[in-house]
Design a protein around this nucleic acid. Sequence first.
DNA 1: GACAAAACAGGACAACCGGTCTGTTTATAA
DNA 2: TTATAAACAGACCGGTTGTCCTGTTTTGTC
Lengths: 221, 221
Amino acid sequence: MTARPKAQPGKRTNDPEGLRKRVLDVAEASLQARGYHASSLGDLMAAACVTGGALHHHFPTKKALALAVIEERVAAAVEETWIAPVQAAGSAREGVRSVFEAVTAELEQQGFVRGCPLNNLAHELSLADPDFRTALAGIFSAWRQAIADKVRADQQAGREQDTDPQRFAALAVATYSGAMSMAKTAQDSAVLRDCLSALEQGVSSARAKRRRRVLRRHRPL
Amino acid sequence: MTARPKAQPGKRTNDPEGLRKRVLDVAEASLQARGYHASSLGDLMAAACVTGGALHHHFPTKKALALAVIEERVAAAVEETWIAPVQAAGSAREGVRSVFEAVTAELEQQGFVRGCPLNNLAHELSLADPDFRTALAGIFSAWRQAIADKVRADQQAGREQDTDPQRFAALAVATYSGAMSMAKTAQDSAVLRDCLSALEQGVSSARAKRRRRVLRRHRPL
DNA sequence: GACAAAACAGGACAACCGGTCTGTTTATAA
DNA sequence: TTATAAACAGACCGGTTGTCCTGTTTTGTC
């Protein structure tokens, strides 16, 4: 049984910020787990222990609530798990690798793949509403931009001369998004490791983590 | 105004297969455009000119209908646009490239990005229902398998010795899925080209789409 | 033609959803 | 204290959803 915040009917204390935070917490979790259309305001109200009047006071419509989650929570999540670590890393390549590994390790530990919040909502809402689409596209853009900027910083330090910043960033984000999509569907994070390995060995050369098997014995004539 | 099939109330002709096909057509389009939860059976019935009784006769529940779309239509779409072309290509790498280019060209021509049907549904339904998840995971698996098999065929022909089939396939599918996700959100297919370029030049070297450059001149100290 | 099963028509219904509305309580400032 | 607005409570409503149910028609078979 999950602990319910706010219960005593005795007294009441106005706490707009706290209530707003509680609603956003619950909404963020529900949007991540069930998506937009499958999340009902009734469930959210019950989970956050908030009445309809209070909810409507802070978020006039369901769309407004979801938009707030996207702009405040999803964007922050991308910032926290991707942008900041990449900026703090020794290089763009190293940053991407470390985020991949950190996320993979976290997924393996908790044994359940919830998927990328941004991608989850992007797929469901991009075509449904232009406001949603714009907000989500902005987060994707900032994500790629941060990685591309890091590549440019590397280049100014004399490294990564042959790497196109924009393309590298697009590939990193796309690979991560797609890998998380598969991991979520298969409920198995192994594909994330495969993708990271393939990314690192440059798609073409392998030599791989262990000895590759040669077996160039029988070639079809 | 879209043309409505079946209209004359004069006579009626039983056509189970045709009706079923019409429903699946409409359902496939709606699931692709609006997703599962935002697609109402009422709209589908109207669009396909099918009564509730007929719909219920062929598909007892909404879930059964969506499952049929996934197993018959989405799987077929992946087969048609990815698996078959890759198998028919001269090599795995060439196959991946040609599909990327074909899809990109098609998107640029129609000026609208609907996204990948498989990924769209995977994000919305993977966590919602285990039956959905299993069906979608199977398609992802077959997709990767086909690419990996092609790499193995290349290897038996003496090529791609340093490529890990499984990892290459995972990277190809993930990159495509993620790129489509961004393209859909931004309503711009440019990112697909970026990803393909980055994929082809092996992530590490840029110097444009031809000639790999070696230049192991300055190594970071 | 008789009969059974499949194919289809169409209404009914209960549950639910999101939004609105009115009223009450709390905080703020004069 | 008093007025003023923000913060919250809680019931209410119209519309929609997916599903079910009872009939009717068509089709195939003997």
